[in-house]
Design a protein around this nucleic acid. Sequence first.
DNA 1: TATAGTTACTAAAATATTTTATTTAAAGGA
DNA 2: TCCTTTAAATAAAATATTTTAGTAACTATA
Lengths: 411, 411
Amino acid sequence: MTGQQSIFELFSDETTSGVAYKNKSLKRTIINHLDAIGNTTITDLAQALNISVPKITSLINELITDGLVKDYGKVDSKGGRRASMYGLVAESGFFIGVDVKHYCVNLGLLDFKKNLVTSEMHVPYVLANTRESFDQLIKIIQHFISTLPVQSRNILAMCVNLSGRINSESGYSYSFFHFHEEPLSATIEQAIGIRTFLENDSRAMAYGEFHNGIVKEEKNVLFVNLDYGIGLGIMIDGKIYRGKSGFGGEFGHIPLFANEIICHCGKKGCLETEASGQALIRQFKEKIEQGSSSSLLQHNKLPEDIRLADIIQATKNEDVLSIELIAGIGEKIGRGISVIINIFNPELVILGGTLAETGDYIRLPIRSALNKYSLSLVNNDTQLHMSKLHELAGVIGGCLIARDKLLAIGN
Amino acid sequence: MTGQQSIFELFSDETTSGVAYKNKSLKRTIINHLDAIGNTTITDLAQALNISVPKITSLINELITDGLVKDYGKVDSKGGRRASMYGLVAESGFFIGVDVKHYCVNLGLLDFKKNLVTSEMHVPYVLANTRESFDQLIKIIQHFISTLPVQSRNILAMCVNLSGRINSESGYSYSFFHFHEEPLSATIEQAIGIRTFLENDSRAMAYGEFHNGIVKEEKNVLFVNLDYGIGLGIMIDGKIYRGKSGFGGEFGHIPLFANEIICHCGKKGCLETEASGQALIRQFKEKIEQGSSSSLLQHNKLPEDIRLADIIQATKNEDVLSIELIAGIGEKIGRGISVIINIFNPELVILGGTLAETGDYIRLPIRSALNKYSLSLVNNDTQLHMSKLHELAGVIGGCLIARDKLLAIGN
DNA sequence: TATAGTTACTAAAATATTTTATTTAAAGGA
DNA sequence: TCCTTTAAATAAAATATTTTAGTAACTATA
């Protein structure tokens, strides 16, 4: 029995029963505990899990022969024999995260101990709802895997993040690549040969930020993904909230404005029509047409070719028009966030995504809108932080989702 | 050892350890399972909980001597020996729910099997944030208990539902009766002599409707409490969602309108300023001042004395003004609900509270506003139902919360 | 009505786990 | 450095749980 087989064996509920099943289940509990707490001793495990020391000892020894756990040496003690520390083995399995953006793909490889082994950022790619675009995505993933320093059979699972409506339970994507009868996750799984999960981009970013980012003890956290659209990743009680069919968090399309702008979703008055990256670009072009000037257009750039990244770069170069527009967008996003703060009373709201890279230019107007629009008792309860992982949030989140889905962590 | 002592013993994590602790914990698991599934057989329990038949048998026998479980006779069989059914004992403990409304109090008594034994509805009472009002509430509860057909020591817990901001974990109420240093729940507990919990009224109604009302298999459910204010009870994954400090669900104060009406929360543009019972009464008075007529004023009633219940009654008598105003309110509530549908993608939205008693007069405009304002993919996923428990929702919900907090069900 | 087939329940045997006692390993003070 | 104290690891004994095998209770069918 190789260690690798053991992982799949251990985490698949086969027809084991009785004592065999209980041992399997206890081993999973131990792995989950080591994952949550980090390296620890047999005595600690025995106390935490309410299992006797000899039993834990024998289970740990089995996990060591399985290759999933190893001895990390002795702990320091203040009187008494020093205990051995046991912990997960980083090399016992790897996970891939694929974060698909509008104009690029970011990929990463995570080991079993949640370290990002390697990543490839900004692989040029244009996301379009076509077969060609899909085929190119597959090629990018295949190429990434071919460059990896680990054997393909040691890669246990992969998660692909896409924007739009995703049912990560069934593996269907409704906004992109909905060509086949079978779920998109199955199509990718066949093409790549690795167990594949699908997740909405904002939820994956929220998950990354939650487990490896800015979040410490907080359990109810909202991640606002400010990009061309506005996404929302909801973490409740430490778990991703997806809603009935995985359509939860459609924050960008709440009807907050009494305007006449038709949103790409077909409705009027959506938050996204006035407070998203798309809206920012539209407003930028309008201002230019109305005669405003911007340093952005100095290098023979046409207004049509302006991308969100350009405007964000311009704010760093103190372009006045860009800064003004971002402030206006921020105020409206703030009004939107005040809605979800009132409803969720979260411990923490994280601002992430491309637009969040403008830092205080967007944070301050959001902050002041929150004071204006949300209940002070609730608002004072809530921290507002910028993303810590920045563009790595999606990659790391994807890897972690692949890992935790396979290991059945956090359901 | 009396059965009653056993309940508290069984559900308090004392310094038991080892086998004793495991048995205690297994007994709780069995009780939880019997609670969730209903009466069942030893074989079923053994399979569901992955414990051997002889072990389950001995635990069930202990629970029978504890007085918590009893034999409900044989099941029908289709071939083979008939199995004994075991289930909880209704009389092994009782729970009180106290639903405090603006102008009355509703009280109920629930047994261990979740049957409503008795209830006393519409006890006259005026909720005000004064000590006198609080003292009167205590007297009403004491009187209710004195009329009950069960001994006070068999009442295991009580839950009091109040509107406004409640931290049900700490037992503090911030909107009403915040007179003492100690939590309000402790003050009531001392006055009455029964273990007391506090809960927000809308959340309690949601819980009642979830467990004993219209909800069947759904796990993500929103309950909208349409009363003088607008409350929201959020059920996620079968559990009440309360937020960081219990302030979650402040749906009435999301900034949805660009009006100049100052809400009692101090902000402008709150949903409640245009779409609540308060707003309805205000609009009614305005219309009357502008010369509209209503059957409501025929019996020498002054516009100042109009209560929400009067307007609702008037719609049943086909009062045109009331019906028109309710339709307008419904359209705006629908816009609010479309926000939370987009965010939560719930399986079910329940309309409850006093205003919901107008039935289709409020449901239809809400329904059409949902079609107008929320994403069709998400909206089509969501059922919209009227409350089934009506004014009993809060009472039953309160009883169930008391029960489930004591039994540590659903955390 | 007898009998085969099915399932629940129970007793005894086998196995597993916990408990207790003992040994090993370390820290810290005299 | 030696001895005492503390805690981990291990071994042996005691207890608990599961497994297996056998019995009881019921249905369906000939």
